[in-house]
Amino acid sequence: MTDVLRILVSPLLWLAAFSAVYGLHGSICGHGLTGTVSGVALPGLLLGAGYALAILAQLALLAAHYFWPHPSSDLVRFVSRAGGWVGLVVTIWTLLPVVSITTCS
């Protein structure tokens, strides 16, 4: 069972981050949140922070996939590392609009 979880953890984290950022974006636009913090628009700042956090967490997990002791088979090691890469790439790719698209329109 830990093997199955090992494979699933990085993509699961992406799913959580993706839903969270989408939800955050929905609430920001739904409530018309505005304002700036030292010159930067607050919505963009919040979303950007979420994006950065998600990427950092994926990097940490990916590192864990390589440095954590793996008791089980080659296949599980391979697939869980692949899962780690998938989580990272997918996080960067799918949340990229945070830094490239108008926030609410």
Binding site: P11, H25, T94, V98, I101
Partner: peptide, 26 residues
Amino acid sequence: VALAFLSFGLWVHHMFTTGIPHMGLA
């Protein structure tokens, strides 16, 4: 496994015309 996960992050593409802000669609 990757396909399974990604498929849970696609649902709004059936709702592109519902007026969700462009970043959400993106």
